[in-house]
Design a protein around this nucleic acid. Sequence first.
DNA 1: TTGCGTGTAAATATCGTGTTACCAGACCTC
DNA 2: GAGGTCTGGTAACACGATATTTACACGCAA
Lengths: 270, 270
Amino acid sequence: MVDRDPGFNQVLSNRLRTLGWDLRSLSSPATPEALVAMRLNALVIDLAVVGPGSWEYLDRVCSRLPGLAVIICTGPSSVAQRVRGLRVGADAWITKPCHAEELICVIEAAIRRHRRNEMPPLEESTRVGQITIRPDLYQAYAGEISLELTAREFEILNLLSQSDRVLRREEIYERVWGYAMAHGDRSVDVFVRKLRQKLRTASPEWNYIHTHFGVGYRFAPEPDLGTQGADSLGMPELDVAGGIPDDPEAAARLLDELAAPDRLAASLID
Amino acid sequence: MVDRDPGFNQVLSNRLRTLGWDLRSLSSPATPEALVAMRLNALVIDLAVVGPGSWEYLDRVCSRLPGLAVIICTGPSSVAQRVRGLRVGADAWITKPCHAEELICVIEAAIRRHRRNEMPPLEESTRVGQITIRPDLYQAYAGEISLELTAREFEILNLLSQSDRVLRREEIYERVWGYAMAHGDRSVDVFVRKLRQKLRTASPEWNYIHTHFGVGYRFAPEPDLGTQGADSLGMPELDVAGGIPDDPEAAARLLDELAAPDRLAASLID
DNA sequence: TTGCGTGTAAATATCGTGTTACCAGACCTC
DNA sequence: GAGGTCTGGTAACACGATATTTACACGCAA
């Protein structure tokens, strides 16, 4: 944003920050090259700040950054001025004073247009344990060989792998299926079973999906300690990844477990 | 244009015709399907003509034709209304009365943004497998001989070949046809079949388009190992690239396939 | 009209999904 | 710790969803 009005600046930056936008506020126009370096999505500019030579400046900016959304937000103007600004390459012209919300909508509309035909954000493949998850191929691999996951299996694995928390069945169902889980539905269990089977055949010495009894499932790649290490310690390793869960119910359960250590082993069937 | 004001209509149509635009003037809103059939670049609409249900109508139009530039040109309105219109998907909101010239500039700006992203700058001929894709001729070749692709077939092939990802049908449809795919539409499947057939006759020993069940299609030229020695052996050559998998389950599956060769083709749809 | 490209409809083949039933293990109460 | 109850794991199966293919109708242009 290039603007000198402190109030306008304040209102807009507050609103945008709560929306999670990254705003840079300047009180004088930057060179087109500087704008390129900023890697902007949109530019909101008050022509009064630019002063004489506005049209030339605007022209240079628009031709240097054809993909940039340019919104002119300035004081009273004539039709001829607005026509000229739009012809030069601006995407919209807003007359001050204006509502912040309306300006934001106009910016969004301009960016939306620009974004529409861009290739979707390249989803990176992630490695977890011995498994590679490739969202671009809707598939997971152990080394080079595919796990042959179905679409739904992949979505569940992908969801689980993106979080260290314990996910309740209802949560999983709602995020994968897209609607609320019916009471008594065991679909998630069944798919977790299929996933586990395919994970086990592809990478037998690791455990990936852990059961939290009465709660849900948690994804965490862990080398399979093969049942021999646990006895020697005399007590199971207490390593709830991520510490105390955010979910108050799960936290309460954890505290219960700490208070009754004799029942701890049972809760970690993993 | 959807508007009932005769004067406004007259002025605008005169001006647009001298600019060489093709204008269709309606006095009542058309269904999204009718708009699709018109193959428009932009839609200028007075919400007063739509009456109640304007937002729903606007929503349907914008989601059905994501590539259409929508300009709302209507009487006095509140900030909330304008915000809502823009949020739903309109590109601009002009308040009547307005200057024809300014409205035209706004339309131009919206179309300009839309057009900019339409044609990928890539005009070079690319080679994939045994096929050469020539965007400048709208045609693909195997060596010197043309595949005789139709325009739509070529566009789909060109789109697929530019990405290694799995592309969902809706994605393919929207980028090739230019508007949202109707539910249950199988056009993409049919064109993929025609493409596959032409690719197979031109280059039988390669596979190009791979099906990802429940997801979509992916383009990747891969030499097709097998199917040519099959007759002499009386059994399909089982040479899945990489030989027999280490994974016991996959190996078992291969043995199953050997036992029931008639099901082999189906299992190799990839 | 004919020919061509395009899109729809229907038949078929195949695969995936989710239900169900049953069993094993875990939890709770006593 | 024993018995009852509940939760989760497993397998089989029927149904529904999805893909492929063929055939055909429509629109457009020569």
